[in-house]
Amino acid sequence: MTGSQLPLLFLDVDGPLIPFGATRQQLPNGYPTYRSRHYRPRGDASPLITRINPAHGPRLMALPCELVWATTWMHDANDCLAPWLGLPELPVVDWAEPSPKDEQNGLHWKTVDLFRWAAGRPYAWLDDDITDADHAWVEAHQPGHALLHRVDPRHGLTDEDFTVLDHWLRQHQG
């Protein structure tokens, strides 16, 4: 199966890959930190990069999809995060200016751009800011061919998230 027949998986970074926002009561010892076999952060890298579990890289690569960065990190995701996770360079969504009309309707500023980027291909989107308005808009424009999966930013990607993704992506292979 070629890459163009696989569903897309749009990856946000802050929240899904870099967990944040838990209280001291929820995580009394703070967030776990990791070391990567593939990459050592440079001095100018985000100090939060060590919160990213490098084991997510092989798990993401094993999913039946084409991975795409959908993050404000933009191309820095390939410079800093891909090596940390052991991922190849991935395509990056370049963002258009959000429409004030979309913002008034409660849409996330990424929603329409991801729909356009997918160009009719099935896609899954991992983000911590997905709302009911985003679900309704995508369902009206691409029914049944998109999975908008909200990740709890306090925990980042979990085994349950990977299970949901794997199941949905296998159902939507070309």
Rank of each mutant, 00 (worst) to 15 (best):
G15C: 03
G120A: 05
L9V: 02
W95P: 06
R37N: 11
Y39N: 04
T131S: 13
V138D: 14
H56M: 02
A70S: 06
Q26N: 06
D134H: 11
P41G: 07
G120P: 13
W137E: 14
P64V: 12
G3E: 13
A124G: 11
L27D: 14
S4W: 03
A96K: 14
G174E: 13
H38R: 09
D14Y: 11
A146N: 04
H56W: 11
N29Y: 10
M74F: 08
R150E: 00
N78H: 04
A77C: 05
R24S: 15
W168P: 00
A140H: 11
C80D: 13
E89L: 10
M1T: 15
W95G: 08
G106L: 06
T111G: 11
P47C: 12
Q171V: 04
E66W: 00
A70N: 11
H38I: 00
G120Y: 06
R35G: 03
Q26H: 01
W73A: 15
L157I: 10
L6Q: 14
N105W: 01
H167C: 03
H141G: 08
T111L: 09
T33N: 02
R116S: 11
F162S: 05
A146Y: 07
I49Y: 13
G120D: 02
A124V: 03
P143K: 12
G156L: 00
G30T: 13
A118G: 11
T158P: 00
K110E: 05
T131G: 01
H141W: 08
R150I: 03
Q104S: 14
C65Q: 12
F20M: 02
A82K: 13
D134S: 03
P83I: 03
D44A: 10
D79S: 14
H141A: 01
M74E: 15
V68Y: 00
E139R: 15
R121Y: 14
D128C: 03
A82F: 09
L17I: 03
W137R: 03
V13Q: 05
T23S: 15
A133R: 15
D12M: 08
L63I: 11
Q173M: 10
